[in-house]
Simulated scan of single mutants.
Amino acid sequence: MDSVSPELISNNQGYDRSHKQRLECLICNYHVDLNDKSAFSTFFCNVRAFRDEKFPIWRCPTCQTIHCLDVVDIDSYYAKYPFAEAKLTLPFRLCYQNLCQKMIEHGFSKTHSFLDYGCGNGLVVQYLRENGFANAYGYDPYAPKESFGDATVLQRGPFDYILLQDIIEHVEDPHALLSKLDSLLAPGGYLLLGTPNATNIDINRPELSNYYNAVHVPYHIHIYTREVVESLGKQQGWEVVKFFNRGYDDTRWFGLNTRTWNEYQSISDGTFDVIFEEINIWQALKSYRFLFYAFFGYWLSLRTDMTIMFRKKITD
């Protein structure tokens, strides 16, 4: 990360250059030119508490990684993050069923130990425990210590299965994160990683929820392609077991797909928050586009998310 000179500040009006910024791609070391305004797109924050704030992003022309330019005090943004208020409703249960099925297909059973790293308020853990997975645990550094913020739970490792869902794009250093998880993953264990797919995100359409949800500034710091994520896993010595070209919340259930989620936001206030609130049924049913995507959205997915199953090799 680099500090920006006063000259660049004066030459790039419209952006606040008074703090550190991400000018170098952490994957391939490409350095973006701040004077090249065409290199940047501006997205608004899709969290209601900060919806009036806008942030520039840029895509590395070499490896296609998308970077959020400005370094912010991210703790203040997480303090009002809507997912913290989410409840384990039927839609979440159906989506988590879809997520867990991906692990079950690779041997996950009620006898295995499981860690949801970056679990938020622990809905996946709650779902698993309700379904008999007694060895399911969660950890999130932004959660209260008396809840899922207690790092001592990591001492229960190594874990047979680790879930890293919508986390890698939130951290500055993916190498450090994956290295830590490698130390928590048992030999022969599986890690399921879900994250946005930079390849399918159009950064020139910041007005569309189909894309601004995936970009999710300033929370998403770096967004990677499939090739980059698989390479990061292989650097840990993991093998790629399976690639899924969509997220766990993109299901065949009526109304439970990303196109429907995004459309509902568009007919509401446009923010991420509405997903975690009680649905306005009448507002939704009055929208022909909402009903269309509720039926057909799965097959019209833009695949802005991806899921990759890794396996840690067993060493002699």
Rank of each mutant, 00 (worst) to 15 (best):
R259A: 12
V153R: 02
I223L: 12
V229P: 00
G194L: 05
Q21T: 10
Y77V: 09
A86F: 08
D173R: 07
Q64P: 00
I223E: 00
R48W: 07
Q97V: 01
N135C: 07
G237D: 06
E230D: 02
V125L: 09
D52V: 03
K145Y: 11
A86C: 10
A186P: 02
E239R: 12
N29T: 14
S113P: 13
N213E: 09
V171T: 09
A284E: 08
C100I: 15
C25E: 04
D202N: 15
I279R: 13
S179A: 13
R156T: 06
R93A: 10
K313S: 12
A39N: 09
H216K: 05
K180W: 06
E146C: 07
V241K: 08
I308W: 01
T152R: 14
L192Y: 10
N135M: 06
L164W: 06
M306K: 01
N12S: 13
D2T: 15
F295K: 12
K20Y: 11
R59A: 02
H222A: 12
I168P: 03
Q13V: 14
S268D: 05
D116F: 12
Q155E: 15
L208F: 11
T89P: 10
I168E: 01
V228W: 02
K312C: 03
W299P: 00
F310G: 01
E230C: 11
C25D: 04
Y77M: 04
D202F: 08
L34Q: 04
Y248R: 02
I162D: 03
F133G: 02
D182K: 10
S109R: 08
Y78V: 11
N98W: 02
F83Q: 14
L69H: 07
N46F: 01
D73P: 05
L302I: 04
T89E: 15
F292D: 03
M306Y: 03
F114N: 06
D269Y: 10
D150P: 06
K180L: 10
L178E: 00
A134W: 04
Q21Y: 03
H216R: 09
I267R: 02
V153I: 15
K313M: 14
I223R: 03
W299E: 11
L184Y: 12
K87L: 14
Y224S: 01
V4N: 09
R48T: 14
Q21P: 00
A214W: 01
T260H: 01
E85C: 07
H220R: 05
Y127A: 05
L256S: 06
D166I: 08
H19C: 13
T271Q: 06
N257A: 07
N204R: 14
D70W: 02
S5G: 11
T89F: 11
K234E: 15
E172M: 12
T304G: 11
A214F: 02
C100Q: 04
P144I: 10
S301Y: 08
G149D: 14
R59V: 09
S209V: 06
S76F: 10
T65H: 03
N11I: 07
I267H: 02
C100F: 08
I162F: 13
V228R: 00
A151S: 15
V171S: 07
L8Q: 09
I203L: 10
V4I: 15
V4K: 08
F50V: 06
D33V: 10
R226F: 13
H220S: 08
L300E: 09
T111Y: 08
R246K: 14
G120A: 14
F244M: 04
T304V: 13
D305M: 12
Q235D: 13
Q101T: 12
E53Q: 15
Y293D: 00
Q283Y: 03
V217I: 09
L191V: 09
